[in-house]
Nucleic acid binder design. Structure first.
Length: 395
DNA sequence: TCTGGGGTCCTAGGACCC
DNA sequence: TCTGGGGTCCTAGGACCC
């Protein structure tokens, strides 16, 4: 008898950045250290803490100075993205030996459809083999969750860390998933969890109780509620789409300044540099974008995004720069800011463009856009923008 | 606990079109 | 004078994740 229950693995590399750092520098092995921070600024945070550092109460997103206050002898290692990318590649290539249906959840986690592989070998044995193999070949520890949906596999891999293997069958949901605190649920973050707590929903099991539905609907839409419920009860997706994150939907660059700045020229210079690196990536990955924008964060941590959508998708640097300069001039209020960013949205592969964007040179493009802008400006000058309030007043 | 950097997805309102 | 309805695109912000 054959059923159609899938066997999904979620493989999570434990303390990945820290693991990579310890591979490169074996001195770090078994020591309390963190990846992150910065030597030039006091504004750095912990990106990843080694398990020894975690035992001391140091965790990611923690301010580096606070971490040092807890443990002054803490070793800090700078972030080295190319190193992580290298081991990430090795990791995904290793997994490919077992299945070709892989979703790269992030740099250090994979969802894998192991249904076929499980026909000839027990899933637990496959998991053990993968875990031991990654350790032996690359010194990369991982935790593996095995379940029938992506969500349950993800929750399962989280249950035992580091080096855990957890099977979460549908019939185990009540015993293994329901007792977990609601804040441990994937998708429930630091904003939603206090609200749920306040409603008396403390565990994942609580969330499924009929009596809490009405209450839950006061803080979330019916749709969100149903989606969470389906996830918990094993009714959510078991389909792994390897292409899902293959093409980025946006590309961005941002930086927290070493000190707050309020000089437009100096800020614009940084924006230009950020745009250059962002644009480099766009070109390197053979992408084009249609929307370009900037991000500004003030000293109160208030963040604004301002963007413009161009007439066509493009990878033309000057088109982006033009837009970004205008946006900045129109939106910067001379208040000191702590962060600037640049982003490109509506990103697609250049070769997937329906219209050949090469038909228009930059000059032609800007000329066209200039004329459109002029038209709009004329109309606006002639008929000033009226809000609905304005209309009511005059009527 | 004075809060990085790179993303995805969702929502909501307004403009505009038919 | 009082107010359609659906669809799509754009902008902005927010929540969340690693």
């Amino acid at each position: 008898m054959k059923n159609n229950v899938k066997i999904i693995f979620h493989i999570d590399l434990n303390a990945f950045f820290a693991s990579c750092a310890a591979i490169k520098d074996p001195y770090l092995k078994d020591k309390a250290f963190v990846v992150g921070g910065s030597s030039t600024s006091r504004r750095g945070v912990v990106s990843t803490a080694s398990y020894e550092a975690r035992k001391l109460g140091i965790h990611s997103a923690m301010n580096i100075n606070d971490a040092l206050r807890i443990f002054p002898k803490l070793i800090t290692v700078p972030v080295q993205f190319s190193l992580y990318q290298k081991y990430s590649r090795l990791f995904f290539n290793f997994i490919k030996r077992y299945s070709s249906i892989i979703l790269e959840g992030s740099i250090d986690e994979a969802y894998v459809d192991m249904t076929q592989a499980s026909e000839t070998k027990h899933p637990l044995d496959i998991a053990k083999e993968i875990q031991q193999g990654l350790m032996a070949e690359y010194q990369l520890p991982c935790s593996i969750g095995i379940a029938s949906t992506l969500f349950l596999a993800k929750m399962a891999s989280d249950m035992k860390k580091p080096l855990g293997i957890t099977v979460l069958r549908k019939k185990d949901i009540v015993d293994k998933l329901f007792p977990l605190p609601i804040k441990d649920m994937y998708g429930i973050g630091k904003k939603t969890y206090p609200k749920l707590e306040a409603l008396g929903i403390h565990t994942i099991g609580d969330f499924t109780k009929e009596e809490f539905k009405i209450k839950a609907l006061t803080i979330m839409s019916e749709q969100s509620y149903q989606s969470y419920l389906d996830h918990i009860l094993g009714r959510s997706s078991d389909i792994i789409d390897p292409k899902r994150y293959a093409i980025p939907k946006s590309v961005s660059n941002e930086t927290t300044l070493n000190y707050n700045m309020d000089e437009p020229e100096a800020i614009m210079k940084i924006i230009r540099e950020l745009l250059e690196t962002t644009h480099e990536r766009l070109v390197k990955e053979e992408l084009v974008a249609k929307t370009v924008g900037i991000k500004l964060r003030d000293t109160e941590f208030l963040t604004i995004n301002r963007s413009a959508t161009l007439q066509y998708h493009t990878d033309d640097y000057l088109s982006f720069l033009n837009a970004v300069e205008t946006i900045f001039e129109e939106n910067y209020n001379n208040e000191p800011i702590r962060l600037v960013g640049v982003f490109l949205n509506q990103v697609v592969l250049k070769k997937d463009l329906k219209v050949d964007y090469n038909l228009f040179t930059y000059q032609e493009l800007t000329k066209r856009e200039e004329s459109i802008y002029q038209t709009i400006k004329t109309i606006n000058d002639k008929y000033p923008k009226s809000t609905s309030k304005g209309i009511k007043k005059t009527s």
